[in-house]
Design a protein around this nucleic acid. Structure first.
Length: 579
RNA sequence: CGGGGCGUAGCUUAGCCUGGUAAAGCGCUUGGUUUGGGACCAAGAGACCGGAGGUUCAAAUCCUCUCGCCCCGACCA
């Protein structure tokens, strides 16, 4: 390809609305152009990058016996009603829904469990046809609360979604393993450094879920990991060994203290001159269930925080959020800041973090304005609490699997693999005839890769002050050969020679034949991030060209006769596994 | 949804406070000169200042409403 025939428009200034590196550089390089919040056009160069990701994904999934299909993006409401997800997705506002000319409700697919389950139920009738794993690569639509960071969180984005169907649990485990293997191969080949972490299974339930995270400071997720034993988990899921509190002794008599205007843990520490870990805060939550809403009280040690995802799971609720001021007043009968287990309305479900299970003589609120209680003992001074692991793990906490401690990094979720079990097949009545002669629901797994997010994540990992540094495996071109002065025949001749020879060698090469000043051309090639460049300039008459490697900025003058060999060697070296 | 910020040419911005009908750089077009680090000269094209309403002799500028975009947060008792 010749650059003079490719639409390339780079910007000299950073776009005003881009903050994170990938957004800024992709926009400045003209790779993406915004149409609206979270909606982008991909340029010819960007599409080349994305197609390279497609190819890698296809090769690795096909290797694991998955089959590519294409499902409808626009889907009927009925399918979503059949799985029970229509109301929730519409209520959450995440789904783009619309009506056809007859007034029938439709949606633009945010995901495809319903469609695929329905399809497989039609096409697969016997256990003899299983296992099967179907995938597609297409645009997904989600009306995100806050689209941001360019391709990181869009409202329309490209996703690879795969769904496995097995006869039983063991089959599912095997399908899951195959996808785990494929995913590792895919992200290795995309040239990104990633880590695989335990993830929350969410309201969907199921036996396992792991996320593939590209490590980057701008990642939206926090990951806790242990260097010693390689435990790694999304903070939403992570467990930790929390330092125990010194034994507070046998239960002592309850004491009430007037604590006017003392509401927060910090104020209580000062007022009583006691450490936060002997206090227990009581937080009221509004939990949403399929058929009702309920206010619950959650107790947490004063120095720890509540993990709302764990809380949601412990309650088996669809969602939880902090109760608002009015709800707090109504349920506790007191102002915000004085809720507690003592004197709590008995209809209110009381949960407590497992760290409080053995702890005696707590300092808590007691649902009375301006009053806190000392020597509170759960069960004695309150109703019995349900104990669950509810606390948020933090960096520095003990690793749950060994004696080392946890560290934190940020990550970008580029892949997620999930054991669904029979959630959808049961809900939708999707069955096959088992060997026993009886119908059985499919054991399903689902697997996603953010195909348009992956290159953005790669940029977050690979850039410098000059621009993007594409991993060679997904670069728009592996090598760019450029001449500086179109009017000098010798330059054009040498460049064409190298270009054609690289082409003949099967290397993905482009010729930068644009008419622009040398300085501008160098800046442009650096911004666009091509891994290897060959520039033919002032020493063309001596058959000398400049060979450059973008990653380390290395540039050397070499005889033109060596150019092709040097390119091949560099590509070989650059496409090795990431360090 | 709450908070903050911003909408002026394709891009980046000035002008707004203190009203007088829009400015610069980059980019683009034409001609010429240049060709190793975002060249130079000359001549051009390009914005009814996000939209609507209001105040005023007069509004990019002041007021009201609205739309869009960016950032932070989802308020831990």
């Amino acid at each position: 390809m010749r650059f003079s025939q490719i639409l390339i428009h780079t910007l000299r200034d950073d776009p005003a609305d881009a903050e994170v590196p990938s957004h800024r550089l992709l926009a400045r390089g003209g790779f993406i152009v915004k149409a609206a919040a979270g909606l982008y056009s991909y340029s010819p160069l960007m599409w080349r990058v994305i197609k390279k990701v497609f190819n890698i994904v296809r090769e690795e999934l096909d290797r694991e016996d998955a089959q590519e299909v294409m499902l409808p993006i626009m889907q009927p409401k009925e399918l979503w009603v059949s799985s029970g997800r229509w109301d929730r997705y519409v209520a959450d506002g995440i789904m783009f829904s619309l009506q056809d000319r007859k007034g029938a409700d439709m949606c633009l697919g945010p995901t495809h469990e319903e469609v695929i389950t329905s399809y497989v139920n039609t096409a697969v009738n016997s256990y003899k046809q299983l296992p099967i794993n179907l995938y597609q690569i297409q645009d997904k639509f989600r009306d995100e609360i806050r689209p941001r960071f360019g391709l990181m969180r869009g409202r329309e984005f490209i996703m690879m979604d795969a769904y496995s169907f097995d006869v039983d649990r063991a089959g599912l485990d095997n399908s899951y393993q195959k996808m785990d293997r494929a995913y590792r191969a895919i992200f290795d080949r995309c040239g990104v450094k990633y880590t695989v972490v335990d993830a929350d299974a969410g309201a969907i339930g199921g036996a396992g879920s792991q996320e593939f995270m590209v490590v980057a400071d701008t990642g939206e997720d926090a990951i806790l990991y242990c260097d010693a034993c390689k435990y790694a988990a999304n903070v939403e899921k992570a467990s930790a060994k929390v330092t125990a509190v010194a034994d507070q002794g046998e239960p002592k008599p309850l004491e009430r203290h007037d604590t006017p205007e003392v509401r927060t843990v910090e104020q209580l520490q000062e007022f009583f001159d006691l450490p936060a870990e002997v206090m227990a805060k009581t937080v009221l939550y509004n939990a949403t269930f399929a058929d009702r809403e309920e206010i619950v009280a959650v107790m947490m040690r004063g120095d720890l925080e509540i993990n709302e995802v764990k809380l949601c799971n412990a309650l088996d609720a669809l969602a939880v959020k902090l109760a608002d001021e009015q709800q707090i007043k109504k349920v506790s009968g007191a102002e915000v800041g004085f809720a507690g287990p003592v004197g709590l309305n008995e209809d209110v479900r009381l949960l407590a973090d497992s760290t409080l299970e053995k702890q005696t003589n707590l300092l808590t609120g007691c649902n009375e304005n301006g009053v806190h209680c000392l020597n509170v003992n759960l069960g004695r001074d309150s109703s019995e609490a349900e104990f669950h692991e509810l606390c948020l793990a933090r960096a520095g906490d003990g690793c749950p699997k060994c004696d080392d401690s946890l560290q934190e990094v940020r990550g970008i979720e580029v892949g997620h693999i999930f054991k669904l079990g029979t959630k959808y097949s049961s809900a939708m009545g999707a069955t096959f005839m088992a060997e026993s002669g009886k119908p059985a629901p499919f054991e399903m797994g689902c697997y996603g890769i953010g195909v348009s997010r992956t290159p953005a994540a790669a940029v977050e990992q690979h850039y410098d002050d000059k621009g993007i540094v594409w991993p060679v495996q997904i670069a728009p071109f592996e090598v760019v050969v450029a001449f500086l002065d179109k009017k000098r025949d010798k330059q054009v001749e040498l460049a064409m020679g190298v270009y054609e020879e690289l082409q003949a060698a099967g290397i993905d090469v482009a010729l930068d034949d644009r008419k622009m000043s040398p300085g501008a051309k160098f800046k442009d090639l650096e911004l666009l991030g091509f891994p290897v460049t060959v520039v033919v300039g002032r020493k063309a008459d001596e058959d000398i060209v400049e060979f450059g490697i973008r990653k380390d900025g290395e540039k050397s003058e070499i005889p033109v006769s060596e150019a092709v060999a040097r390119c091949k060697a560099a590509l070989e070296q650059l496409s090795g596994p990431m360090q």
